[in-house]
Design a protein around this nucleic acid. Structure first.
Length: 234
DNA sequence: ATGACGATTTACT
DNA sequence: GTAAATCGTCATA
């Protein structure tokens, strides 16, 4: 994690300790800010290690949260991962072309989670650029709009929930993965200790205007001044 | 079986 | 700022 204005992270490439299940069991409002600065790691089938520090998260509070997929106790095929153990990955497909990734953080049958909205990329940037240059999601953009040669600036590589999934090759195959045990997908201790409270911002969640009062609640946390944050508040 | 919509991103005015 | 892309999911019938 770096403050605005400083150079590349000194500890890029550093491997941390894997976060234990007890860390993930904190519940969404505690886990969302606690995940800031932690390192999300993805090992590709060919062994390439991709990683980034988490710089933006959102809490989804479950059955009473109108913005949550589990609102009202919905227990559909799509959201089944949200009802699993803390530390489970909930990956869903949306808008016909994008994936988003959440960390489940409640007891079994308590469908709460934290959406990972942005990362500061630290390892495997080349592979990320290649993944982001092509077409998104499943079917992906029409021919007229896809541009395999398009250049994605580093600050835009993982600056959104679907962008980071694209950059890190996170798709449906990782839905339900156990982040505590899985060897392709996990979270390590990063540089959260460097984050003073004043460096953490809080704001409304993005893209949930349909959720009435729940749209107004400040359930989004982000690292102030970090260029990878998807939508820095005013 | 059908229709409306989405925890988004992108290009364009 | 607006609109298009694109299809699985969900509610309704």
């Amino acid at each position: 994690m770096r403050e605005a204005g400083t150079k590349a992270p000194r500890h890029a490439g550093t491997k941390g300790k894997r976060l234990p299940r007890s860390f993930f069991a904190a519940g969404p409002e505690a886990l969302a800010p606690a995940l800031l600065g932690q390192r999300l790691v993805r090992i590709l089938p060919d062994g390439t290690r991709l990683a980034g520090l988490i710089v933006e998260t959102e809490a989804y509070l479950g059955v009473e949260d109108r913005a949550a997929h589990s609102f009202g106790g919905r227990r559909t095929q799509r959201v089944k991962s949200m009802y699993q153990r803390p530390g489970t990955a909930y990956v869903y497909f949306t808008y016909g072309m994008h994936y988003c990734f959440n960390v489940v953080c409640g007891a079994v049958d308590e469908p709460v989670a934290v959406l990972i909205r942005a990362l500061e990329p630290t390892e495997g940037l080349e592979a990320m650029r290649a993944a982001r240059a092509g077409r998104p999601g499943k079917g992906g953009m029409v021919a007229a709009r896809r541009d395999p040669a398009r250049v994605v600036r580093d600050g835009e590589l993982c600056s959104g929930p679907a962008k980071l999934c694209r950059a890190m090759s996170i798709d449906r195959s990782l839905d339900g993965a156990d982040l505590v045990k899985d060897d392709r997908f996990f979270i390590e201790t990063g540089r959260s200790a460097d984050l003073e409270p004043r460096m953490i911002g809080r704001a409304r969640r993005i893209g949930v205007d349909y959720a009435g009062d729940w749209a107004r609640r400040e359930l989004r946390w982000f690292v102030r001044g970090n260029p990878n944050v998807s939508r820095p508040p005013r």
